[in-house]
């Protein structure tokens, strides 16, 4: 593969927070994402929607470096994430480079993935103490502040098994934020929740959008929620962005046939 087409660093006047450049992901012969190009500006909230199997979650997992990519380059804040410079060209990144770059990304999962043997507070403090090297006191102050933000401060000494799904997901959001990421990823964070607790999680994300200048990328099935808070919606179909645009335009006046079909099918299911 010719890597000379990819800059070692993006120029200052064309430097989105996230750039997917011709990214390919395949499992054997099955191509999940085909030549993906996607920019996300600093502070932008982008939501990915689409039928299951369209590659939505894979986009997030590649950005979190949970999946390796088979082609193209991902840039974070102008610097390559999946690659690093060696002798003037980009080569696949080693573990050290990935760890350094990954520090600017945080992720929340569908199944929360809280550490079951730690309390809510310990879950939040784990990264700041072990990875960022903060003192226990600093990490505690930061974590308590974030647990207050997500409304979980009164449960800070509970283990995850004692918390409801919505409460666990709010702690998971606080845990991700405690690392002070530049980019936050939300992977179907409400899909595993009972309907009556979805609101407590979406409200936390609304608050983040309103009060913080975080760059966010979200996969969700909550169309109303996506419409309310996103700056842009990307509709994925068979590993490609079929259509994208501001929520009002995409939901109100979709241009492509596939988009219309998907949106009307979702509306019927609601």
């Amino acid at each position: 593969m010719d890597m000379s087409a990819y800059p070692l660093e993006l120029p200052a006047d064309d430097r989105p927070m996230v750039r997917f450049m011709n990214v390919v992901k395949s499992y054997g012969r099955l191509v999940v994402l085909d030549q993906l190009n996607l920019d996300i500006a600093e502070g932008e909230m982008v939501t990915v929607i689409g039928p299951s199997g369209s590659g939505k979650t894979t986009v997030l997992r590649m950005l979190m470096t949970l999946e390796t990519i088979n082609g193209g380059v991902i840039y974070i804040d102008g610097k390559p994430l999946t690659h690093m410079e060696r002798n003037g060209v980009l080569v696949p990144a080693d573990e050290r480079h990935i760890r350094k770059m990954r520090a600017s990304i945080g992720m929340c999962f569908q199944h929360f993935n809280l550490f079951p043997h730690m309390t809510a507070l310990q879950n939040c403090m784990e990264g700041p103490v072990q990875v960022l090297g903060l003192s226990k006191a600093e990490a505690r102050a930061r974590s308590e502040e974030l647990l207050t933000l997500v409304g979980m401060i009164d449960k800070k000494d509970q283990h995850p098994s004692r918390l409801s799904g919505g409460q666990q997901q709010r702690v998971a959001i606080a845990r991700a934020l405690a690392m002070r990421p530049k980019v936050m990823l939300f992977d179907e964070v409400t899909s595993a929740l009972d309907p009556e607790v979805i609101g407590e999680v979406t409200n936390v994300i609304r608050k983040l959008v309103a009060e913080h200048n975080l760059t966010m990328l979200m996969v969700t099935h909550q169309m109303g929620f996506a419409r309310d808070i996103s700056d842009r919606i990307c509709f994925f179909y068979r590993g490609k962005i079929e259509e994208q645009g501001p929520p009002a335009a995409l939901f109100g006046n979709p241009q492509k046939e596939r988009t219309k079909q998907f949106l009307s099918a979702v509306k019927e299911a609601d």
Partner: peptide, 9 residues
């Protein structure tokens, strides 16, 4: 995956 997401060694 959660460990990777908070960048634990």
């Amino acid at each position: 995956e959660a460990c990777r997401a908070i960048n634990l060694s």
